[in-house]
Design a protein around this nucleic acid. Sequence first.
DNA 1: ACCTGAACACCGTTCAAGT
DNA 2: ACCTGAACACCGTTCAAGT
Lengths: 193, 193
Amino acid sequence: MSGRLTREAVLDETLKLAADHGFEAVSLRAVARRLQVTPMALYRHVGDKQGLLDGLVERLLDELPVPDTSMPWTERLQALLAAMRTLARRHPDAFFILLRRPATTPAALRRRDAVYSALADAGVPSTSIPRAERLLSTFVLGFAASEAGGRFTATRRELDEDLVIVGGMLPSLIALVAAAETTDDGRVLQGGS
Amino acid sequence: MSGRLTREAVLDETLKLAADHGFEAVSLRAVARRLQVTPMALYRHVGDKQGLLDGLVERLLDELPVPDTSMPWTERLQALLAAMRTLARRHPDAFFILLRRPATTPAALRRRDAVYSALADAGVPSTSIPRAERLLSTFVLGFAASEAGGRFTATRRELDEDLVIVGGMLPSLIALVAAAETTDDGRVLQGGS
DNA sequence: ACCTGAACACCGTTCAAGT
DNA sequence: ACCTGAACACCGTTCAAGT
């Protein structure tokens, strides 16, 4: 509010702007206007436009509950999935940024580690865990982005059911990935067609 | 080139611009400049900015080979997957648009129908086909967008292997979706956590 | 019907300058 | 170290006018 500008203050105001007028209204100039500061003042604190968006997404991920490790692994994964979907509804465009950036920020890593530990508890061999997480997060991000972006023509009820079905399939899916991995002898087929 | 402006000429030039300077260089003004025309002249032919992008994506989808129905269904699905991935490499940003728009254009519908018929040949009951296609395309678009957008930290080789594994899992996956559907008695669980 | 000209209300970013 | 002012090179879109 008063005194010196900080990275925190910039991201707080960015979050408010996104909540008020949506993600697409986020611009360096608009944030600067709300802070009563010149656009160039922001560069020192968040870098450039991409830095501002990264900071915003990091804040949103921080709001996601990370399920307690005392819960069964299936419930933990389903809780993470539900949390992502809630986020997708409130901030649809956040997922398009997540699809463009590797999980390197603290909040993203915490979330990924939660998936890793759930997969370990599910009995996935450690060598298969990164692959299983990659395939899982690809589906989850793709689903959230599709729903938020308006790609699906199905009803909300059908989409809810999609996730219930996928949730129920999780143990089988994970077993399939683990099995494929151990079967694989190192030769990689090229999808030549 | 000469004579009157047409929708085709506008999209041709847009495609060239995207090929030369990338998707993010596509703007109404830039396309108009190349056509030696005022920006406003484009509105009559492609609508607004979103219309221009939709037209561009439609053109790109049209380039994708649609596998012959004489091939086994597994190969057809894998061919579609490989084609999408090739597109992802040449035009990474196209997928972020596909994630935002329902498949309503002719080229998109042709591609979706190819998946439908492959799933039918796979023995998926007709009531389950839309769901199976939805889940499959969610994964495929999510994977292509993740790879193109730079989300993955895995090597190209590991990602190739991911798709080989998923390709090999297809029959089991499809069986799982079909089974879940018939088991379901209509009650939808809410992921309440 | 189809295209132009001028204008409006924005963008991100650089660079030199102030304190 | 931190912020400002002015400028550069862009955007999408509307509206009235020309042919």
